[in-house]
């Protein structure tokens, strides 16, 4: 898992272009669900919260980590659920 800093920057730069490439083909009517969907994807911060809370060594760190996990969890679960609810509606009317 240890990778050199240059490798990580390489991943970062490629991801920038992939993100731009993927979104440029979205019709405007799907922009709200798309924004909501990408919003859920950055909910991956939950795992950042879990990782730092697992190693938390002081009550302060535990408190901050706990809040981070609650926030991240609401972001990721709420994000995916609300997006699904939105898209469900798009599907229904197609019949």
């Amino acid at each position: 898992m240890e990778s050199s800093f240059a490798d990580v920057v390489f991943i970062f730069v490629l991801a920038i272009f992939v993100g731009i490439e993927v979104i440029s083909k979205v019709p405007s009517m799907l922009h709200t669900p798309l924004m909501s969907g990408t919003n859920a994807i950055h909910g991956i911060i939950l795992f950042g919260g879990i990782l730092v809370l697992a190693d938390a060594a002081s009550p302060l760190a535990q408190l901050l980590g706990f809040i981070a996990v609650v926030f991240g969890s609401a972001n990721v679960f709420g994000g995916f659920m609300v997006t699904d609810r939105m898209l469900q509606m798009f599907k229904k009317k197609k019949k």
Partner: peptide, 14 residues
């Protein structure tokens, strides 16, 4: 955490 880098960057650029 590379998964966070990829996910975050995808959201950031898109």
């Amino acid at each position: 955490n590379n998964a966070m880098i990829v996910a975050g960057t995808l959201v950031g650029s898109s």
